[in-house]
Design a protein around this nucleic acid. Structure first.
Lengths: 353, 353
DNA sequence: GTGCGTCATGTTTACGTAAACATGACTGCC
DNA sequence: GGCAGTCATGTTTACGTAAACATGACGCAC
């Protein structure tokens, strides 16, 4: 590592020949165009007060040197990064990845980039680590797609002054929350099955740590109680088709079970498989409803009746809410629910058909 | 917008009371701790040359003020952002989202954040726009999960000096490419079916614009030709289960068709449904193989024989390759293939079983 | 006891940008 | 023809950080 020449004296003129300069700055463009860097700045930002001929010279110099603005310097100057951080556990679930996609798309339309901060295994340490990292990250605000109670458990508070929107959580009393209307979706599913004439509905819930799983389960229970129907024992899965299959085998063994509401489509898929293997026909013997309406749900055997979630809308509202905070100042807590819609396909029918 | 006090004179002492200062800087911490900001910097970076008592004072001041380093200033200083950009079309495909997740996780482990740059509809304009945006973005390198020929069509070149790794493309002659070994996966699938005794194998390909679809299709054709088998007409879908269903209906109508290799699992799902509806049993009448081995594939009816892709490994290698470039300088083009593995489940069997 | 090295800490400067202010040329009006 | 006003352009400065260099106190060896 030899350093002979005094730094920065002939740097710009050096560029073409010797070791190339890392990056082209406004000063380089200014030098080539024979103007001041401030004029370059004006051209770069489309500000008025630059005569046409000068502007053209500057533009020519820019493209000759391949000038690109340095966003770090910009951010430093403006105190904003034009970036949104998204903290999440993983993209493996359809819901998460579709929400993130919507967030990214909508944020891009608003001139914001998004930075992904994955928390591998949802341990307290990892959540803590993600938050620490996030604190140092170049973001103007954060969208949390994460179970907030883990946040509580980790006794972490968000750094003060960080704008936050939470997805899929019960933190509506502390943060702005955007979520699918889990309860209403579940109600629609259960009422649909009861409306078909089923005496009651079994429920295959997601993991107890999941807020949305709990919300769906409690709505299910509530509808049954309200209708004066017996509440069958709760089955639990982990969102995976495999866990749905295992639960499905148990449900298939109970001849009284004629209607199943699975907390997501993948578990419903597993249930369909288990019922099929046990010789119970869907929907003739057992009706099955899912939740999410993932792209494949219409191709299951039989095509699945399920609750449609508008992930794109959730993502859009998250971004809007966060940008609102960033531009107009912090907003209070509250929950913004995106409606769901039951999509009836071929996996449900009156009992004993 | 009233501005009375001269900026920056009493700013630090003002903080607790009046309009709060945007952000705590090293200077603020230094003031409170009664040291220079350089000493704060040393403490923040764990550098030696700070006596224990001083260090403690600084740390105390940091936590009292809630100091967080400003990454924009850091980036400006170092000329690096510790961020990787990922340009992609969407997260809707399982492959993309799993690859991105792996990239994010692995990058985080290496101290890098990732910034998502979605290109909505893959038009030339949009690709161009994404590249422009990316050029201004605070990233040290870019991973392209995108069909590179679109890049060519848009006549875009990556800004010089931007480090790049491409996924799923034939650009191995120009860029470093990391990809699943598409061809070998397809070969395994077709040979498995031939090995079971099928006379030939039908193929349901992905869209012609997709490089991996083309690669799988050409491997399929090659294996058949090599084995001297007839090459049935190619069916095409768009990766969706629906398109698989439509193609499946056509295939079901041909009694000669006893073995289908679908270019992904979702289309295979559609094929299964079509065959089922047309009364053709799987695998007794028709064998079906997919590609990807998505989480649900084992729960299809019947559980799907498919080619397993190691998305996590692809993501990991992308990050490694990119960080290698960033730290050790540009590396030449070339293709790094991640092996695939056939997972045999219940959707394949000898013909006429 | 003089001198030099060591070490904690402070001061200066540069990173790239853009707001704020300064300058100087030209225009138009009386 | 002189003066104010307008407008293009240049100069200074600050954003927060950290490398490079500077300072000054102390200790130890001769």
């Amino acid at each position: 590592m030899i350093k002979i020449e005094p730094p920065r004296l002939r740097a710009a003129t050096d560029v073409p020949g010797g070791r190339r300069k890392q990056r082209v700055s406004m000063a380089d463009v200014a030098r080539l165009a024979g103007v001041s860097s401030q004029t370059v700045s004006r051209v770069a930002n489309g500000l008025p007060g630059v005569v046409e001929t000068t502007r053209e010279q500057v533009l020519a110099a820019m493209s000759e040197l391949g000038y690109r603005p340095n966003s770090a310097a910009r951010s430093l100057r403006y105190g904003r990064f034009n970036t949104i951080g998204v903290i999440l556990f993983g993209l493996s679930s359809t819901g998460n990845s579709r929400t993130v996609e919507a967030i990214a798309t909508h944020a891009a339309a608003e001139g914001y980039a998004i930075t992904l901060i994955p928390v591998g295994v949802p341990t307290q340490d990892n959540v803590l680590g993600a938050f620490t990292r996030m604190g140092e990250l170049a973001v103007d605000g954060v969208i949390l797609i994460i179970e907030v109670h883990l946040l509580d458990a980790a006794a972490v508070t968000l750094p003060p002054g960080v704008h936050v929107v939470v997805v899929d959580s019960d933190a509506g009393d502390r943060y702005p929350v955007v979520d699918t209307d889990q309860a209403d979706g579940a109600r629609q599913a259960v009422r649909h099955l009861l409306g078909l004439g089923h005496r009651t509905v079994w429920h295959l819930a997601g993991p107890a740590e999941s807020f949305s799983a709990e919300r769906r389960a409690s709505a299910w229970r509530h509808v049954l109680e309200e209708a004066g129907r017996p509440v069958p024992p709760l089955e639990r899965g982990d969102w995976s088709a495999d866990s749905g299959y295992r639960a499905g085998l148990r449900l298939a063994a109970d001849p009284a079970c004629t209607a199943v509401f699975a907390a997501n489509d993948q578990m419903a898929l597993g249930v369909l498989r288990a019922l099929h293997e046990r010789g119970r026909r869907v929907p003739a013997d057992v009706s099955v409803v899912g939740f999410d309406d993932i792209a494949d749900a219409g191709s299951y055997l039989p095509p699945l009746t399920t609750v449609h979630q508008d992930f794109a809308e959730v993502g859009r509202r998250c971004v809007d809410a966060l940008l609102g905070q960033i531009h107009a100042g912090p907003s209070g807590p509250g929950t913004d629910l995106v409606p769901t819609r039951l999509v009836v396909r071929a996996s449900t029918a009156p009992p004993g058909l």
